[in-house]
Amino acid sequence: MDTKEALYNYCLRLGDNNLVLGQRLAEWCSNGPILEEDLAMTNLSLDHFGQAEFMYEYAAELEGKGRTCDDIAFKRNEREYFNALITEQPNGDFAFTMMKHLLFSAFAQHLYESLSLSNDKRLAELSVRALKEIKYHFRHSSEWIVRLGKGTQESAMRTQYALNELWMFTADLFEINKIDETLIGIIVDSNELFPAWKKTIETVLNTANIKIPEKVHMLKGGYNGKHTEHLGHLLCEMQYLQRAYPNAKW
């Protein structure tokens, strides 16, 4: 694998994380606990779709086969998506969704911070842009986790349950494979992000009185296209029109 191909695949990974999270957040549309939060979640979703789009645009350029970002977003099969497992997990209740976004946005914040210093100029630029948005996502989800953790007994229970269920997907975020190895010097080794991420998460969770579960068996594989069963259904719905009318322009 040469650098260009690795970078193409890396952009797919970044794009896929965003696409899948955007799609999951969009499921909240008209289902939020208050109207204000409905709009807030739509904003987060729009940010993710926007980020997916510009990552795919860069990927398409690197690939150089004349594909569009929509070809990349809509016309791949399950095993060709490289998003982290946590992003594809179903929304669950509001605490579950916010916990998912806390864990992911804290990760993305540290990741984009490091990528914004990348010597691949384009990647650095895109990361600076994404970082602004993701900081807000972190703020939004962390404040909610504190509210829910310290709110009522019920909300604390739901929030703790969310973390217990989601924790097993967190190591997957820091996995490295051939792509990362090829890109050493352009991207940071994800393992190096782990301590900072852990600290960020712990600060929020401590404030919220939520405990990190111990001895959890970690599930991994998203970056290698080995997913949970949930992704296929998400793609099925998302790709429906492109698949049903392959010759149509939209």
């Binding site: 969009a26 109207l35 739509t42 926007g50």
Partner: peptide, 24 residues
């Protein structure tokens, strides 16, 4: 969730968001 392009998805989402905002 089934909008056929990323552009269409973003536009539709922003429009629905506007509707929520207008309700508000």
């Amino acid at each position: 969730l089934r909008a056929p392009t990323l552009r269409a998805k973003k536009i539709l989402l922003a429009k629905i968001q506007d509707e929520g905002g207008h309700g508000l």
